[in-house]
Design a protein around this nucleic acid. Structure first.
Lengths: 242, 242
DNA sequence: CTATTATACCGACCAACGGTCTATGACTCA
DNA sequence: TGAGTCATAGACCGTTGGTCGGTATAATAG
């Protein structure tokens, strides 16, 4: 095989890209290292020059995901005009759609991300994301408590619950896929929509806010994302690139 | 090797027992099938006579865990004298200590269960447990709503949140281990204790109850469990038997 | 009391896996 | 130009989860 030398950063990103596609489509366990290096067109030696192990590759991938997610909400965090409630709402709404622009793209991400074989990958991303998001949330809640918008004796605890809720949709979504049939899907969508309302109210309460203050997402958003699958059945394949 | 024939049910339980010990001590991934069959004193052929794959073994183990946990709360569920709130509280308190009698035992379980390499096992158990517990919780909440004790528009959603909270201590506990030092441990214990109070209040609110109605666990329980480690350092080994 | 079938078990074997190692082509800089 | 470092290649290794043909024991039938 001819020896192709690329700029280390590019090579590393390429490895991450192909690993991402393969991990998402086949799952971390089932996608072998040989698959990854074959897809990336690289030798074993080259791979182990960049990553210490398959595990390390997963870790790096999770970190990249988290970095991207964080970048996606940075302008909300930096917006000095927002009060704590506004910032929290913006963050919740933003994180719901993350880096996803259209409902169709959202579907593709959901489809791949929430399949059971992606448990490990998903968990790593969550871990990495929590590490970046938690301090931000805590800071927002602290400010809110200081200026009297929020009321709570455990800002970190509330921040944890906020994150938990932000990610808890996972289970409901996963169940929607597990069901399979359109009828099951419909039921899951309704349940998810109701769940979001419930989360909003729960957050209102534990933050000492009047009902209706927290807005995680506008009604109908879930359905829009979910039904995008039918309008574009080609989605759900590997997610290439950054 | 001499051929030893046992009653199928016994052999199967033995395999599950040794798998449980090994999975908990080394993690599902790191404990190899050869380890399991060596510990159980059985050949490859024998193993595959009982389980279709390593994955199936994990599944069966998770189911057994869930079955045992369910049996542990059965008398609370069947207690006709309890009103919905009392039953819910009893269930929350019970599930917190599960099959564990002493704080020392609780530590051993926590120590093994919540180590990061047991993510997969833990998740499977959760899945299986949720499947058995959810209907029970929903039924209790439904009854509470009917007789006016609780107020909510989404009993299933509330049930989900209750389960979530019941298991959410996982993350905080995991962080306690991740830290390692005694100081970190102390901080984690304080955080966990505060978190429990927060959960109680949150559940009060989303169930439309006055504050102080929900009692997940008495104050100090977390510390009692956590500090049991120092008083009995021998703990943390494999958990043998049923 | 055999003959036959079904069940529980054994262990050699296999492809594929993650990971290691040595070799070497390709740049860098003096 | 030559020494040294970096990026790559690919043969190789022990172990893994899993398969397979065979065998001893138990259950059943004639």
């Amino acid at each position: 095989m001819p020896r192709i030398i690329k700029h280390p950063e590019i090579r590393r990103e390429e490895l991450l890209d192909h690993a991402q596609a393969l991990f998402l489509t086949h799952g971390y366990d089932k996608a072998s290292l040989n698959d990854v290096i074959a897809a990336a067109g690289v030798s074993k030696g080259a791979f182990y020059h960049y990553f210490a192990s398959k595990e390390a590759l997963l870790e790096a991938l999770a970190e990249r995901f988290a970095r991207q997610a964080l970048a996606g909400v940075q302008k909300v965090v930096d917006d000095a005009d927002l009060d704590p409630l506004g910032r929290l709402n913006a963050l919740l709404a933003q994180s719901r759609q993350a880096k996803v622009e259209t409902a169709a793209e959202a579907w593709a991400l959901f489809e791949t991300m929430f399949r059971p074989e992606n448990l490990v990958l998903f968990h790593r991303i969550n871990l990495a994301a929590s590490k970046s998001f938690s301090p931000i949330l805590v800071e927002i809640i602290r400010q809110g408590v200081e200026d009297g918008t929020f009321r709570t004796f455990d800002p970190e605890g509330v921040a944890d619950i906020v994150m938990q809720f932000g990610l808890a949709t996972h289970d409901v979504i996963a169940k929607a896929f597990a069901g399979g049939s359109d009828a099951d899907m419909d039921i899951a969508i309704e349940a998810l929509e109701r769940r979001v309302r419930l989360y909003e109210i729960a957050l209102d309460r534990i933050l000492g806010l009047p009902d209706g203050s927290i807005r995680i997402g506008e009604p109908g958003y879930v359905r829009a994302v979910m039904t995008a699958r039918r309008s574009n059945p080609a989605l759900g394949g590997p997610i290439e690139g950054t």
